[in-house]
Nucleic acid binder design. Structure first.
Lengths: 186, 186
DNA sequence: GTCTATACACCGATAGAC
DNA sequence: GTCTATCGGTGTATAGAC
């Protein structure tokens, strides 16, 4: 078995990510990954025992990056705005759809996805709670409910944006911006 | 080509829907559909020229049903509560993920998905607008923004529910129920 | 309309040389 | 570590008989 964290290991996951993002998981095959990074197919099975293992590792690496980004955002001067930007700008809705579909088939992936959602939600709720306490504005909402609303709508906006739908987006973005303005004055 | 709307045509789409829901789109093959309804594989290509065509027809039939259900809900005595129930109880988040992933690959499907989102949003926004006018409660929100919030969070709740995540759900459901109580007193 | 049979491509995974 | 070669299976789609 090839060493996790080695150059080829990362190159394969990079290639897999690009393929999943651009072509969908029907195209995510060991042959396609090998071609993408210029090695032979056999090598993929040297670094990852099975394709399912590769998918799980891909998500794990991605979610670790994403959690680190969230942690960093939560320590910024205006953490709420920073987290909103992470959710709405850097998150790839296409990848989310693909991983959700895959998670229904790969048990190990579902576990990782659950861990990621709960971990990121904890960070977000804590940040919202602090902002509410500091600004003394809650809009009559619990930190949990506001977090759930914001992350749900961020993903929906991104997903529809990628698809080409724009109805109700302007009004929704304006609402979020208004709340940010009150919770976290610039 | 087999006649659209015929018994076999519907049986094949029923089978396809069950497979997509239970096993995911990796298992959605002409062989599997034929086996499911007890015919030979060749017949699938008699009723649908290609597998992509079948997927598009499957979504079209499903979204027509869903729009009819929404229209009916919008004419109920308590339309907002009825629409919320449609979104949060009968919508299958697994199917949504699968179709979103497929839409990125099949152009014809993306067109149908866009049409469905815009059509259903129009119905929902109109219903919210009327409820706001009647109850004289707006929470400082536009009908568009409230609709977007509600549908986004409904899908997220359902998706996480199916996955086994529960954090922040109780608070979010309580919030929605509270708003329904004010906008549409029982 | 429904079938048998099949062409052809591509998949995951492994054996084993170097 | 990286390769060539290959096995067994399965996919879409079509030819053509009945």
């Amino acid at each position: 078995m090839g060493p996790p964290g080695s150059e080829n290991w990362h190159a394969m996951l990079d290639g897999a990510e690009a393929i999943l993002r651009d072509e969908g998981h029907a195209a995510l095959t060991s042959r396609r990954i090998a071609e993408q990074i210029g090695v032979k197919q056999r090598l993929v099975y040297y670094y990852f025992r099975t394709m399912d293992d590769l998918v799980v590792e891909m998500f794990r690496r991605l979610s670790e990056r994403e959690l680190a980004r969230l942690e960093e955002a939560s320590r910024a001067a205006l953490p709420l705005r920073e987290i909103w930007d992470v959710c709405v700008d850097t998150t790839d809705a296409r990848l989310v759809s693909e991983f959700m579909a895959l998670a229904a088939r790969i048990d190990g992936l579902a576990k990782e996805v659950i861990y990621f959602i709960e971990k990121s939600r904890a960070i977000q709720v804590e940040t919202v709670r602090k902002a509410m306490a500091q600004s003394k504005r809650t809009f009559g909402l619990s930190a949990e409910a506001l977090t759930m609303l914001a992350t749900s709508v961020a993903l929906a906006l991104k997903r529809e944006d990628e698809l080409g739908v724009r109805s109700a987006h302007a009004e929704t973005r304006a609402l979020i911006q208004g709340m940010l303005e009150e919770l976290e004055p610039a």
